[in-house]
Design a protein around this nucleic acid. Sequence first.
DNA 1: GGCCGATCATTTGTGTACGAACTAACTGAA
DNA 2: TTCAGTTAGTTCGTACACAAATGATCGGCC
Lengths: 167, 167
Amino acid sequence: MTNRIARHAVPAPAERPVEPDPHAAPYRLDEQIGFLLRRANQRHLAIFAAGMGAGSQGDGHDLTPMQWAVLAKLEEEGATSQNRLGRLAAMDGATVKGVVDRLTERGLVDTRADPDDRRHRVVALTAAGRRLVARSRLAAAAITEDTLAPLSAAEREALLALLRKLA
Amino acid sequence: MTNRIARHAVPAPAERPVEPDPHAAPYRLDEQIGFLLRRANQRHLAIFAAGMGAGSQGDGHDLTPMQWAVLAKLEEEGATSQNRLGRLAAMDGATVKGVVDRLTERGLVDTRADPDDRRHRVVALTAAGRRLVARSRLAAAAITEDTLAPLSAAEREALLALLRKLA
DNA sequence: GGCCGATCATTTGTGTACGAACTAACTGAA
DNA sequence: TTCAGTTAGTTCGTACACAAATGATCGGCC
């Protein structure tokens, strides 16, 4: 669990900061919602990589968050077009393609043409993909749990509700 | 303000989902903290791009969130080493380099050697960089405001506090 | 029945993100 | 002082993320 970022106390600045314009509104990067969202997400990604990444003691998931999202959605929804998959997993078409390509190379999903609409490419889990999802369920739940560990049950609910409102 | 992702109602699935194992714990991707964090961040990034991106009605900021974070931190703290800048702005060394390189190409920052420690490369705002930061302050504040728009003042405070706890 | 706008997939290009491996430089203890 | 451990920066490789442009296909409307 590396997470080399901002994990230590920051040492004193090398030189005195430029005095800001006293008329300017105060703007502290660390107080902005964007910065805090990014930090929280970073921590989550580190936890995810530790639990499902390549280095996670050979339990063999080796999935990125996006790859897991696609697999999980495919199991929830069954086979679907790339486009719908992208909407469900909240990623754009170009990104979906990359993720699906990598999953296809590993034999976890496959893609076939849709006879009803030849624009669609229908993506589905393979047997190996279904097995991997089944094996990874617990790890995924543990990642959610670890990410929320600093919060009480009430705080967790509040945070999820606020984030849903924000999205 | 494009945001093509998941902006529309999702149509019915093309075929019936595979029935999940009734013994498996329920796992809904949309309820996981990671998914919600990513969605919230996506929306923020779209708002940011609209307010400071290249297409934002020629007000000429044309900054990414990372680039803005570096510029804002440099103004808060004055000239600092790349490493410290990375810790302050919460990005790893390799990422800092890319961002600083692009800002350098645009003449917004420059880098010099530190005579006291020749490992350090000290990054500082140029005059043009300082002017751009001054011009962009209001836009940055508006982005924070727009991102938090769906929430009441109390909810905003609660969300920021919870995210701080999570980081 | 054939055109027109919308939809789907793909490609290209830019910009994060970060692990891993490497070199140069510093620092403290033997 | 010397050298082992640490730190700063760079490079490489992989994987998102998304705008924009392109080409194929569909669906409806005249």
